[in-house]
Design a protein around this nucleic acid. Structure first.
Lengths: 285, 285
DNA sequence: GTTCCGCATGAATCGATAG
DNA sequence: ACTATCGATTCATGCGGAA
């Protein structure tokens, strides 16, 4: 059985009209942040952001199944020395639309952007907001269990603080080399804090988020042959993750350049991803 | 020169009236969460939380110096399957009072409370909201610098196993001398994500945060002989941290039981804390 | 075949300068 | 005055080339 991958070029609000009601199991997306990526996406002003996003979230609510989940990756920027409030305002408005704000996961970016300022430290985290249509959403917790036990308890305890943080990141992402060891040990459920580095060495595109991020949520909230949607596909990370995990995927991207890259890349990347996939397979059992 | 420590028993709003305008350099507090700890504090309903807190934050704005900072440790609880929105509403309302919402730090609780739910993972983080009165607040970034990531990777890797164990055993009871060498090496500024374990061994108070948490902010936002305020003193962690770092401290606690405990404990705990302090002192130089 | 260095590169932010 | 642009600052990561 083959999975289906569709990528459409156009404005998210328009293309979403063509999708059927209650057809999507999971939405994972990272929309352009306010006033960011001006060169590629034009940049939505901070004070227009909520107004811009609400028509899209309304359509997303329509296409999502009652058992489905919407994961929104977003972070407010600093304006005039203060954090902007549009993310909070967006949550409040989306609840009025009928969304349930179920949870807020934290993505701890280990390799955040460098810099020094007199009144501020580096920003090392982003929000991963979980919204649902009903309280009866599907969640497959066993698919993302992480190894625990003596390895983490005793070995890590003797390491330095920085080492411990580094190793925790591996645990959170579910990757590592000694998978065979993990299998014989105890497994534990993860928390709502994810430790992942951004992918900066990628040549073709500025990767929005690492492959592990959508992969983690896809494993957690869908099963094989479910349908995953990303209305801001960008470089296609969510779609590749979905296809790789044998989920049907739908992508929308407004920029033709990215659209073509994703359309071609799906086939191209399959082999590369498949190699990595073995790691997932082990962990998913 | 001696530092001064005052602890008052009473309602925060009332006692704050007696404090002078522009007299406090730093406020660090963890107010009772909505509907939590009903047995001890009576529990403020989630839908009344903002209304309850605003008179207090208004007084805090008055007593804080223009160069001062207010750190609010808070996390919304889950109600009826959803995260409550009172923290977001509180931020929006406090901005209307004149507070600047400068930053949101994340406290990653490494050993968070265990448990399993069908639709939710363990909650491993809390918000540390930074508010300011003006943009010209004091910040002493050098006081909280941490060793660089590269340092752990290369330097530590070359040490023998016994060396590593010996050094780490010293950490528990105060640092060894050779750490002073590390300090002259590569240090980096931290990020806005704090990795701290919760103190589970705390006997008398239900929801105390670890000593390192207020200590970190006290070092970051004050200098010696500045004044630190905690309007919800609880078991007195903030006050002990302040005194220990030679800052003047003011505490307010509504429950007589805690009030007496803190009042007596300040002297009692001094020795215990002082031993630990050596570790901090090294890092602060 | 490994291990080790060197180097480019980020969903950044501030303050100064220019229109 | 108020907004747009630019340079300086900073550090974890993963790659490629070298020992």
């Amino acid at each position: 059985m083959e999975v289906n991958s569709d990528i459409f070029c156009g404005d998210a609000t328009d293309v979403l009209q063509d999708l059927g009601e209650n057809t999507v199991d999971l939405i994972v997306t990272s929309p352009p942040y306010a006033d960011q990526r001006k060169d590629t996406y034009g940049g939505i002003p901070a004070d227009k952001y909520v107004e811009w996003f609400l028509p899209i979230s309304k359509e997303l609510l329509r296409v999502l199944k009652p058992t489905g989940t919407f994961i929104l990756n977003i972070k407010e920027r600093v304006t005039n020395g203060e954090r902007s409030t549009y993310v909070m305002e967006l949550i409040l408005e989306m609840r009025k639309q009928g969304w349930l704000w179920t949870e807020e996961f934290i993505w701890h970016k280990k390799n955040c952007y460098p810099g020094k300022w007199p009144n501020r430290f580096r920003d090392a985290w982003e929000r991963l907001l979980q919204f649902n249509k009903t309280k009866q959403f599907h969640m497959y917790q066993e698919a993302v269990m992480v190894p625990m036990g003596d390895w983490a308890k005793t070995r890590l305890k003797n390491l330095s603080e920085t080492d411990r943080i580094r190793d925790n990141s591996r645990v959170g992402s579910g990757f590592g080399k000694n998978i065979s060891n993990w299998l014989t040990r105890d497994m534990a459920y993860p928390t709502n804090v994810l430790h992942l580095a951004t992918e900066c060495g990628n040549k073709n595109h500025s990767a929005a988020f690492p492959l592990e991020l959508p992969s983690w949520f896809i494993k957690l909230f869908t099963k094989e042959f479910d349908t995953v949607l990303d209305p801001f596909a960008g470089s296609g990370t969510t779609l590749f993750a979905a296809e790789n995990l044998r989920r049907n995927s739908i992508g929308i991207e407004i920029l033709e350049e990215y659209y073509h890259m994703v359309k071609n890349g799906i086939k191209e990347k399959e082999y590369y991803l498949f190699e990595k996939e073995e790691g997932y397979a082990f962990i998913n059992k």
